[in-house]
Computed example of a mutant assay.
Amino acid sequence: MITNLIIFVVTNYNKIPMSLFSDNIRNLRVQQKISQEKLAEALAITRGRYVKYEDGTSEAPYEILKKIAHYYHISIDLLLSVDIRKIPMDDLLQLENNRLVLPITVDKDGENFIEVVTQKVKAGYLNGYADPEYIESLQHISLPFLGPGKHRGFPVEGDSMPPHEDGSIIVGRYIEKLGDVMDGKTYIFITKNEGMVYKRLNKNKKNALVVASDNSFYPAYEVKASDILEIWEYECSIGRNDRKPEISETASVKDLFLELKREIQDLKIKH
C-alpha cells in the first residue's frame, strides 16, 4: 500500500512525454474545476497558447512547466513522468521547491517497509527509481529499530568498502538535500554517469563532492552535484560474512603498498 511520496528533483527536460503531460494538466484542471481562461491568466499567457499544451500540439517551455507545477503544488517530475490519476494526491508529502517522488510503502501496522534493490534488478534502478510501480515491485523487509526516515537497501559490489563485500546489502536513509551530507560519513550515491556507488564522503565542495573508498588501493574522485540523482546515508548493513578480520595481515599489505607507492614517486622525481 502506498501512503505518501517523498520528493527529489531529477527530470530530463529535453524530451517531454507530451501525451502524459497533456493528460495530467487536463485532469488536474478538470478535478479542480478551473477554466482554461483562468489557468492561462494565472500563467500569464493567452488561452490559445495554453490549449496547445493541453492538446499536446505544443511543448511547454521550462518557465511554463515551473509555473504549472507551482500552481498545482506538485513536482514537475510528476507532471512529466507519472500518470497522476493513479496517485492519491491528497497523500503527497509537500516539500520545498516541488522536488521528485519516491513512494513510501507501509505494512498493515503502518510501519515503513524497506525496499531492497537486489543485484538482479540493480541495472533497472536508474530508470525505475521515480516509477511508483517499479518501486512497489521491489522486495521488502522491515527493520523497526531504524526509526524515522525513508530507508532503502542497496547491493554492494567489489572490495572498495571493507568489511562490506559482494552480496552484502547497505541500508541507507534518504537524504533530501545535498547540503545535509557530512564529510567522513558513507553514502549510497545514485548518479547519472557512475550509476550506483557506495563511498565515503571525503570533501563537500561547492558544486561537487569528493568521494573515496575505504580501501586505499582505489583513488578518490569527484562527483558533480548536477550528476547526482539520489543520496542515501548509511544506517546499517546486512551481510553473511562472519570471518574474523585479519588485522595484522591487512596492515602488512597496506604498508607494502604505501612503500611501493613511495618508491614509484621517488623514481619519478629522479627522472
Rank of each mutant, 00 (worst) to 15 (best):
I87C: 07
L143R: 10
R49N: 07
V51E: 13
I84D: 04
T57S: 13
I87T: 11
D242H: 09
K270E: 13
Y62A: 09
N98I: 04
E37M: 10
I68G: 00
L201G: 06
K268W: 05
N24P: 06
L43R: 04
Y234G: 00
L65M: 08
V197F: 03
Y218H: 02
N215Y: 03
F154R: 04
K66P: 00
L28R: 01
Q119P: 06
Y50I: 01
D90R: 15
D214Q: 06
S137Y: 06
D183Q: 15
L92H: 05
L92Q: 07
Y50N: 02
K120I: 06
K199R: 15
T191W: 06
F257Q: 15
I64W: 00
T105R: 11
V101Q: 07
V171F: 08
P132T: 09
P61F: 00
G153E: 03
K177R: 15
V197K: 05
F154W: 09
L93G: 10
A42R: 05
V30C: 08
Y234P: 00
M161A: 12
A208D: 03
M182I: 13
Y187W: 09
K66M: 07
K150T: 14
K206Q: 10
Q265F: 06
Y187Q: 08
L79H: 04
N207L: 04
G179H: 11
E133P: 01
N4M: 01
A69Y: 08
I247E: 10
N12Q: 09
D109G: 12
A123H: 12
I87F: 03
E249L: 13
L260M: 14
I170N: 04
P144E: 11
E111S: 12
S226Q: 10
E111M: 12
I175E: 14
L143E: 09
L43E: 01
S252G: 13
Q139G: 09
H140K: 15
Q139C: 07
I247L: 12
D77E: 15
E136K: 15
P144H: 14
F8V: 04
I45S: 03
K205C: 09
T3Y: 10
T11I: 07
L256R: 14
N215F: 02
L267Q: 14
I87H: 06
L39E: 01
Q94E: 12
F257D: 12
K244M: 10
Y53P: 08
E235M: 14
N112D: 10
E37G: 15
S22L: 06
Q36S: 11
G48F: 00
P103C: 06
P148Y: 11
E63L: 02
S19A: 13
E165H: 13
I169D: 01
S35K: 11
P148T: 14
K66L: 07
L146D: 11
D180F: 10
S248E: 14
D91W: 00
S252Y: 13
V101S: 03
L229H: 05
E115G: 08
K203G: 01
A69T: 02
Y72R: 00
L80G: 01
I6L: 14
I68K: 02
V9G: 08
L93W: 10
I6N: 05
I141C: 13
A44H: 14
V171A: 06
V181M: 10
A212I: 13
M89K: 12
G128F: 03
S160R: 10
S137H: 12
V51H: 07
F145K: 13
I228K: 05
L138W: 07
E54D: 04
L93D: 11
E41M: 09
E246P: 03
E176C: 06
P132G: 08
D55N: 12
